[in-house]
Structure formats: structure tokens, C-alpha cells
Design a binder for these strands. Structure first.
Length: 431
RNA sequence: GUGACUGUAGCUCAAUCGGUUAGAGCAUCGGCUUGUGGUGCCGAGGGUUGGGGGUUCGAUUCCCCUCAGUCACCCCA
């Protein structure tokens, strides 16, 4: 093959495109009914914008280039910097709260692997300007509503919730000094990727003695039900100073989300900018990577030159969620638009009339198709009609000259003689 | 960017130890039964075996490079 699609990218042939459209439509409709408005930005930004959020290290992960004026630019690998820039620029005129969603395509210059390609489409949902944990719960509720809409259940997918400041407090109480805190979070994140001995050794180097290493290990592996915050409080010896976790718990209950959610203090999220709640959506067997991830980032808008503004949001990529739905047998087939009518001509005279009939159907807003084959074999033409999933076959024969045709319902097999004039209505009404 | 494994028709796979013209099913396209449905019969197209180089009388098969895929690392959109 002379040319192929670039590494880690996908071509969307009609079937693939129909699925992508179906998925993004689901994201859009869920967002809209939760009161979010769609936004978008440029597909590339100045490289500095990404450095501002993530530091120099991000550069090697980005596709970047110099424009003709010598400016360093990068194609977007995430949407949050663009969002933060947009909010900061108009912070004074935007009414609060700001509830935005976006469905950008993003690229990263990484080696592809399962659930992680170089280009993907990502649903971003962000709620800015609300300090209360009600916002955290509402945003989680958006993600859960999507899961429900595509047919997933609380038995299949969990929302794992943690809290940066709570975990930090626990670690401090265990005796991790401030300067080792980042290291401790990294260890927490890597706990399942490294052998137990190495975990223990690393934990001890944080200044923990053996019983405390054990408590650390237990803390990051144990799960707690949502809707019962006192249990978590007692279990980890948390005092009352973290009321917002209690408030979050109350809101998760109030929104009816506790079946889907659990506390998992092992959830870290790599991004340093999260300030409070962090969460990830995982398929329970753990064979796929996280379906979505997000959290609270109350300082980011300031970082981008805006006013102090609290914010909470998440991102969900198309690749993992599609994998999960395929694993579960929940990928719907035939999501491409099906024709309302397939028009068939059985005589030369009828064939001359066919374009007019098709055109009239289309003017009436119907999805109408016909055969490009020369044959007059009705069986074959009906086969073609059913193969393209048409709901009706409109059969024109020698009675067509009198304005009459046969209308066949391809699902039921029922067939009636109707006027050609009335076909558009008949085909439109019977959904 | 590092490492491991893999690459034969649109898809799923054959081809003995390195041996003649690389095969099959499905899919696609065409024809047949002269007006009622996906699974009937007949036929056709489709491949520089991912690409390039090497070893050999001879390479789908062995070696090297490269491209792509898969998985892991790094990192986590």
C-alpha cells in the first residue's frame, strides 16, 4: 500500500462514522438536558498555553510546529487550557455559573496502545463558578446519565471518587512529611503496577514504619460506599475538618447517584492541577483503562490570567467507552440513518416516472432511495431495499401511469395499493 | 521515546522441511429462474504475501532495515 493513515489515527468509513455520530449525539443530548451549552475553540494554540498548565514536560507529548512568523504552536492534546483561556478572557461578562461542554478531537504524539490512540474525540463537561460540592455531584451526574443512556449499569461501571486534600491529610497524619507528599501520591498511583516488596520499600522511604505502611496500603486499596460518609470517617479516622466531602456525599445521595459511586482513595489522577474531588469511571473488571476522569480545579482560571474561579469537570474519550460497550455487547448495530422508502420500477414507463416520485418524497422530507441497477427482477430489487434497511418499498408498475402504486411495509410484509400522491404521507406517518 | 510480539485478497484464515502458476469461506460485482425479501444455481474481479534490501538455483517461509498493528513501560488527553 502506497499511503496509509498516520500512526494511531482512524479513518471513519460510513459505518464507523455512523457510530461516532451516534456517540457524539448521545454526549450532546445528555449535556443539553443537564443545562450545559456547547463550545469549541481552535484546534491549535500557542505552545505556551499548554506549558502554562502542564510545564515543559508536556512538549514532547504534543504535535508542535513553528508558524511562518516563528511562533511556537501546538495542536490541542486537551481542551481544558482552551476552556480556561476562553473563560479568563470573558470572565467579567459571562453569567455564572458557567456550564459548558465540548466535543473536540485531540491529538497526542504518543505510541498508540489499547484505549489510547494518537487522535481521539473527547467529551468535556465543565461547571465553573460554583464552590459547593453540589457542582461536583451534578457533574458526576452528567457522566452517570450518559452511562445509563447507552445501556450500562451500576454493576458494570463504577464512579470511583477520591479527594486530594483528604488524602493529603491522611498521609500527613500517617507521618508523610510535606516535601515527600508528591512522591507519596505517585506511589499511591503506582501501587498496582509494582511488586508488593517494592511498594513497601518505597513507602518506608517516605518515612513510614511498618504498621503505617500497612495502613497506607490498606487505605489505598479499600473501597467505601457512598451515602454513608460516617463509615469512611470512622474507618480512616477523619475529623470534621473536611466538611465538603460530607456535603459531596449528601449531594450524591440527593441526586440519586450512590448506586454508581464509591470512594476509592487510590484514585489520584496524574494532573497536578486538581485541588479537591477527583474521580474516574471504570469498568468493574478493570480490563479497560478509565472511561472518564475529572475533578475539581479551583486555581486553574487564575493561572490563565482570569479571576479566582472554582471549577469542576471531566473528560471522556470515545476510544475506551467504545471498547467497553463492545465488550458488553452494547454496541448498537445499524445506527446509520435508514431510508423511509425504496422506490422500485418494474416497467420502462414506470422507470421514466421514478425520478419524479423519488424527488417528491425527498421534497416532503423523506429519506428516499432507488436502485441503480438495470434489472426489473422484483425479488432482487426487494432484496436491495431490505439490505439498505428501508422501511417501505414503493413499487411502480403499469398502473403508475394512472397515479397508483403498491406500498409494501418491509418489516411486516403488508402491502396495499395507494395513490402515488399520498405515498409521502403514508411513509412518514407510520413510525 | 524504550522493549516484546505480529503483518498473506475488503474480512477470517490456509499454503508440509526453503520448491513449480499463493488457495478457501464470507463479502463485493455480474448472470440465471420472465412480479414479491437477507440464506438457490452459475460465473467474475480482487494479491508485487505491508515496503525495501540481503542469503539462495529458488523466499510467504531465513537475516537486516523500515512502515504499520497489538501489548507493556514512560505519561496520562
Amino acid at each position: 500500500m502506497k499511503f496509509q493513515s498516520p500512526k494511531g489515527t482512524r479513518d471513519f468509513y460510513p459505518q464507523d462514522m455512523a457510530w461516532r455520530q451516534f456517540l457524539t449525539d448521545a454526549w450532546r443530548s445528555v449535556s443539553v438536558r443537564h443545562g450545559f451549552e456547547q463550545v469549541d475553540g481552535p484546534i491549535y494554540e500557542t505552545l505556551d498555553l499548554y506549558k502554562a498548565k502542564s510545564g515543559e514536560g508536556i512538549v514532547s507529548e504534543l504535535f508542535h510546529f513553528e508558524d511562518r512568523g516563528g511562533r511556537e504552536m501546538a495542536i490541542r492534546a486537551e481542551f481544558t487550557p482552551t476552556l480556561a483561556r476562553m473563560v479568563a478572557a470573558k470572565a467579567n461578562t459571562l453569567s455564572r455559573p458557567i456550564k459548558w461542554f465540548a466535543i473536540p478531537n485531540l491529538v497526542r504524539a504518543e505510541r498508540p496502545q489499547r484505549g489510547r490512540l494518537r487522535e481521539h474525540w473527547q467529551w468535556n463537561v465543565d461547571l465553573l463558578g460554583v464552590d459547593s460540592p453540589q457542582a461536583d455531584a451534578e457533574v458526576i451526574g452528567v457522566a452517570v446519565d450518559f452511562l445509563r443512556q447507552v445501556g450500562l449499569t451500576p454493576q458494570q461501571v463504577h464512579v470511583k471518587i477520591s479527594h486530594r486534600r483528604v488524602v493529603r491529610a491522611i498521609l500527613a497524619k500517617l507521618g508523610v512529611p510535606d516535601e515527600k507528599m508528591t512522591e507519596a501520591f505517585e506511589l499511591l498511583d503506582r501501587r498496582d503496577k509494582i511488586p508488593p516488596e517494592q511498594f513497601t520499600q518505597s513507602a518506608m522511604s517516605l518515612g513510614l514504619d511498618e504498621p503505617r505502611v500497612e495502613r497506607f496500603s490498606q487505605m489505598c486499596r479499600r473501597k467505601y460506599h457512598t451515602g454513608d460518609i460516617d463509615h469512611l470517617r470512622r474507618s480512616i479516622g477523619l475529623d470534621d475538618s473536611f466538611n465538603d466531602l460530607g456535603e459531596l456525599d449528601a449531594q450524591l445521595s440527593a441526586f440519586g447517584l450512590t448506586d454508581w459511586c464509591e470512594y476509592d482513595l487510590g484514585i489520584v489522577r496524574g494532573l497536578a492541577y486538581y485541588t479537591g474531588t477527583v474521580f474516574e469511571l471504570h469498568e468493574v473488571s478493570g480490563v479497560e483503562r478509565a472511561i472518564a476522569g475529572g475533578g475539581r480545579y479551583d486555581q486553574l482560571i487564575e493561572t490563565f490570567g482570569g479571576p479566582a474561579m472554582s471549577a469542576v469537570g471531566f473528560g471522556m474519550g470515545d476510544v475506551v467507552v467504545t471498547n467497553v460497550l463492545r465488550d458488553k455487547g452494547l454496541l448498537p448495530e445499524d445506527v446509520a440513518p435508514a431510508p423511509d422508502a425504496f422506490v422500485i420500477a418494474l416497467t420502462d414507463a414506470a422507470q421514466a416516472q421514478l425520478p419524479g416520485v423519488v424527488a417528491a418524497l425527498r421534497r416532503a422530507g423523506r429519506h428516499a432511495r432507488f436502485s441503480y441497477k438495470a434489472g426489473r427482477n422484483l425479488g432482487k430489487l426487494l432484496k436491495e431495499a431490505s439490505q439498505c434497511r428501508a422501511r417501505f418499498a414503493v413499487i411502480l408498475d403499469d398502473k403508475a401511469a394512472e397515479g397508483v402504486c403498491e406500498l409494501k411495509n418491509l418489516a411486516s410484509g403488508e402491502q396495499n395499493q395507494v395513490t402515488i400522491e399520498g405515498v409521502g404521507d403514508r411513509v412518514g406517518n407510520s413510525e
